[in-house]
Design a protein around this nucleic acid. Structure first.
Lengths: 341, 341
DNA sequence: TTTCATTTCCGAAACGTTTCGGATTTGATT
DNA sequence: AATCAAATCCGAAACGTTTCGGAAATGAAA
C-alpha cells in the first residue's frame, strides 16, 4: 500500500505538503498539485480513510438501524428507502451502513453502542413512533441524525416528512364535500407517527363537517393487501348502514379494498367512493387501478436526496444547514370518488 | 470521550496493560481484568474502532455493492439477502456496508476504489455473471470475498451456492420419466451464472432422454410474474404441438405461468405439468398454489449464516477456514405434475 | 539464601493521516 | 539594494490504539 510518506519521498516534498496538495488546500502551488496528482496516480496512492478518521474525528460513515427481518410486501417502502438512501450517500462520498437487529432488540442499547463505537458520523431514523426513545437519546448524545418522518409536532430535530395530517384532512374534506358522512379509514399500524397523524387529520376533517366520530370506522394494521381485504370486509359487516367512502393510507391497501368491495358486490364509486394516498413506489402504480384511483400523492423518492443533504449538512459544519422539510402533497381526482348517491 | 489513557490514569496502570486487559490477553491477572472492566463501565469507556483499525489493519467492516436501484418485485430476493446478511454480520460484530451504485456504473472502478479506501475487510458478491470481472479483480488484489452463487464450475473462490445444474437436471428427469417430451423452461435473465447452469442441466436432462433441443422452449427474462405471463403465452402460441410441461426457475414465474395457462384454458396437470424451483422467500409461499406445486427446493435463508461464516473465516486468519458449500435441494412432488396423458 | 521459571507488568514505537505554528522563497514596491 | 506582503513550504505533534521487547515481581525449588 502506498502512503503519503512514499509519495513525499518520491517527490522530494514534505508529507505535509503532499497531504495539503491532495486535499486541495490553497497554500500549495498549482504546479505542485499537478505533480502530486500524477505521482499519486502513478504509485496508485489512495488516502487511508482510517488514518484520516483518527485525526479528523470523522469517519464518513452514516448508519441506518432497523429492527427485525424485513419481509415483503409490508416493508416494500422500507427497502426502497434503503436502496435510495444508500445511493444518495454513496454519491456524496459517504458510506452507508445498514444494521439489521434481531426482532425486539432494545433500540436504546443498540444506538448507544453504535454511537460509542465512534464509527458513525450520523444516523438516519425511519419508522418513527409516537414516543420515540431514539430521538431523545441521540439528541442527548449530541449526534447528528435525521428522521424520515418526525416525532412530535414541529420538532427540533432534523427531518423529512410528508404532510400526513394534511393528507388525511384533505381526503376527508373531499369526501364530505361530495356528501359522504360514513367514511372508513384503512390505516397503518398503531403507534407510528404517520399513522397517528393521519388519524388526527381524519378526525379534524370529520369535526369540520359536523360528523360524529365512530371508532369502528378506523382499522389499523400492516399496510398490505391482505390486511385491507380483511379490514374492509369486517368493517362492512360490522357497520349498518355501511360506509359510503373509504380512505386507504397507501396504494397496497387500496388494492385490497378494491378486491374486498368487489367481493362484497359493491361498485366503485357508485356504492363506495375510494380515495388513497400514493407514495409512488416503483413496485405498484396507482394508474393501474380500475376504476382509476383518486389519490393524494407525495413521492417517497423525493426524500432520499433531501435526507442525505440534511444529514450531510449536520455532519459537516462547513456546509450551510439544510432545513427540515415537510413536502406538500398533490391531489389527483380520478374516477374512484363521486357524489353520494 | 474516554480513552485508554484516561482509564490507565484512573487505575494507576499502564496503557498497555489496560489495553491487554480489555482484549482479554492472558498475561494480565484476573483481578486486574476485573478492575479494568469496572472502571471501563464507570467511565463509559468503549474502544475507538478507528484507532484500533489503524494499527491492526482491520476495520471490522464488510461491503456489498449492488448496481442500480433495486425495484420490486424483481429484486425481492436481493432484498431478502441484504436483510439477512446484514443481520448475520451484525451478530458477528461486523459492520455491514451497502453501497448502491447508479445503474451501469463500471464495477471494476467501484471495487478498485472500495478496496483502495482500505475501509473494508471483505466483500460479498451477488448476481454473479458468467465472466464476472469482479472475481478476477478481487482475487488479484488479494482481498477476502465470498460469492453468493459462483463463477465457473468448481471455482477456487469462496462461495455459497445452490445446485442449479442439479435442480434443472432433476426437474427434467422427473418430467421425462412421466413421459413428457416437449418441456418449456421459464428462466432468469441471460448471462447470470445461475441461469446458465439451469440451462445446462436442462439440456443434459433432455439429452439423457434422447430428446432434441428446441431453443424456442427456453424463455429468459426478469423473474417476475408478468414476464412469465408473457413468456408462457408466447411460447404456447409459437410452438405447435404445444409443450406439455413447464419448468419455472422460481415461484414468481410459476405464479405467472399458472395465470397464463388458465387464460389459455389449459389445466394443470391434465394439459400441462408445471414444476418450479422454490427459493423459499418469505413473500410468496409455494404452498399457496392450486393445484399444489411440485418443486425442487433450497431455501435462500440457509445461506446467510454460511456466507457470513465463510467470509469471517477468510478475514480472520485465526479462525479455521469454513469451506464453500453447494447446498443440496429437496424434491417435493405435489399435484402440478402428472404422467403425460 | 540463591536460582529460575512463571506471572504480571511497562515504555516506546508504530499505524497514516491532518494541522499548528512558523520558516523560507518569490517578486513587486520602494 | 532594501523592504514587505504574498505565496509556498516544512517539522513536529497529535489522534487512540496495539504490540514488541524486555523488566519487575512472585513463588517454588534448590
Amino acid at each position: 500500500m502506498t502512503t503519503l510518506k512514499d509519495l513525499s519521498r518520491h517527490l522530494g516534498l514534505s508529507v505535509t505538503q503532499v497531504s495539503r496538495a491532495i486535499n486541495d488546500h490553497d497554500d500549495v502551488s498549482a504546479s505542485t498539485k499537478e505533480r502530486v496528482r500524477e505521482a499519486a496516480k502513478e504509485l496508485g496512492y489512495s488516502v487511508n480513510l482510517t488514518a484520516r478518521s483518527l485525526v479528523t474525528g470523522r469517519t464518513g460513515m452514516v448508519c441506518l438501524i432497523r429492527d427485525g427481518h424485513l419481509n415483503l410486501p409490508e416493508h416494500t417502502s422500507g427497502f426502497e428507502v434503503i436502496s435510495g438512501l444508500s445511493m444518495e450517500f454513496s454519491q456524496r462520498g459517504y458510506q452507508f451502513n445498514l444494521q439489521m437487529t434481531p426482532e425486539g432488540t432494545d433500540p436504546v442499547k443498540v444506538y448507544k453502542k453504535a454511537v460509542a463505537s465512534g464509527s458513525f458520523d450520523g444516523f438516519i431514523l425511519t419508522d418513527a413512533t409516537v414516543n420515540d426513545e431514539r430521538v431523545a437519546l441521540l439528541e442527548e448524545l449530541g449526534v447528528p441524525f435525521v428522521v424520515h418522518g418526525r416525532v412530535g409536532e414541529d420538532p427540533k430535530h432534523a427531518y423529512f416528512d410528508i404532510d400526513n395530517y394534511g393528507v388525511a384532512l384533505h381526503q376527508v374534506r373531499h369526501l364530505t364535500k361530495l356528501g359522504h358522512k360514513r367514511i372508513g379509514l384503512l390505516n397503518g399500524r398503531d403507534g407510528y407517527v404517520y399513522s397517528e397523524s393521519r388519524i388526527d387529520g381524519y378526525k379534524d376533517g370529520l369535526a369540520e363537517a359536523g360528523i360524529a366520530f365512530d371508532d369502528r370506522l378506523i382499522r389499523s394494521g400492516p399496510m398490505i393487501e391482505d390486511q385491507a381485504l380483511i379490514s374492509t370486509i369486517a368493517m362492512f359487516q360490522d357497520i349498518n348502514p355501511a360506509p359510503t367512502a373509504l380512505i386507504c393510507s397507501n396504494i397496497l391497501l387500496a388494492k385490497g379494498a378494491y378486491h374486498a368491495l368487489s367481493a362484497l358486490n359493491l361498485s366503485i364509486p357508485q356504492d363506495v367512493s375510494v380515495i388513497a394516498h400514493d407514495d409512488v413506489l416503483s413496485s405498484i402504480r396507482a394508474s393501474a387501478f380500475y376504476p382509476a384511483l383518486t389519490v393524494t400523492k407525495s413521492p417517497f423518492e423525493d426524500g432520499y436526496s433531501v435526507i442525505a443533504d440534511i444529514l450531510c449538512s449536520r455532519i459537516d459544519p462547513s456546509q450551510k444547514d439544510v432545513e427540515s422539510v415537510e413536502v406538500p402533497f398533490k391531489f389527483i381526482e380520478r374516477a374512484s370518488t363521486d357524489k353520494l348517491a
